[in-house]
Amino acid sequence: MAARSPGIPAQERLFSLVLALLASEHGLSKSDILSTVQGYRQRYDSSGGNQSLERQFERDKDDLRELGIPIETTEPPGEQGNNQLLRYRIPRGEYELPTELTFTPEEMAVLSLAGTVWREGALSSQSQRALLKLRSLGAHTAQTPISYAPRVSIAEDSFAPLSSALDRKRLAEFRYLKPGRLDAEVRRVAPLALVQHHGRWHLYAHDASADAPRTFLLSRIVGPVRELTTAHTWPLDGAAAAALEGLDRLWERQEAVIVASEGSDARLRLGARAHADDDGTLRVHYTDGELLADELAGYGPDIVVHSPASLVDAVRLRLGRVRALHSAGAGSTQRPGAPAASEQRGDR
């Protein structure tokens, strides 16, 4: 094909790069790529001064890696340390989906549904791309009797930067407001997993100052999350499962005793997830007393919390605040964002 004008679309350059790197058995040097591959060669200057094209190549490599395309670099023997002689290739075995991989129509249906769970942000585009690859296998998707529109929301701004630090294995720093404290304190952590438990996002991380794993509620992170350039070497393997197990254990251990009036909305909704004694007393498990207190305060006069005492106090404190804030002429004196002043253990 005759050389074209330099206006070659990015996807054509990226596609040509993948083809060239996959085809090469022994790898291509950077100058091979820049001078011959479609989309680069049109802008290549054989007399030198290709810095901007080299930067383009670096960014394109990042894009390929983002798509899960492995790029292998090798140094020719005896020439270590010379960047210009590095050879690049895409190893076919690590690039291709295993040929034996197949999915039944039922499995495809479940996977397609799983891909719709994320509606916004990076997770949404990542699951859409995963679905593209799956559809490439050509399997049919079974129809379900009723359609589902499931959704996991991510309202916390801290999710995206933490997810990035998690993937790059870098330390992150943020201000964290412990319940019962007035001021947020700076935490420096190695993020190990992001988990949603009972509808709440948690970060499981190795905390530098405590030198131990800690679980943080994303909704208690105040202000921006800073990703540090420092990489960490804490193992991530099984971290998400460990985080969920820890939260489950906590949930199992903590029980609130609540009496809800007969026929009330509270009785119905709490009852759906509680154990009810013979006399109708509800026993509700929970992970975070402060969050449960927020929810329970919302049921107002429909319930009375009997124990634990810390939860009773936390609910009464909230109701007292609502009363004070809505008394005549209050409002203006209320300090916004003042956190609950009840006691709470640990980092949750």
């Binding site: 798509l67 291709e96 479940v110 799983a114 891909g115 990542q126 995963a130 993937d167």
Partner: peptide, 29 residues
């Protein structure tokens, strides 16, 4: 090209977490 590319670690994670979330659904088979 013969086969589709593998999933990136984040693509696989997004679908896996979606699947975990769905495990309560009766349709999940």
């Amino acid at each position: 090209i013969n086969e589709p590319p593998r999933f990136s670690s984040r693509e696989a994670a997004a679908l896996l977490a979606g699947l975990q979330y769905l495990s309560a659904l009766p349709s999940a088979g």
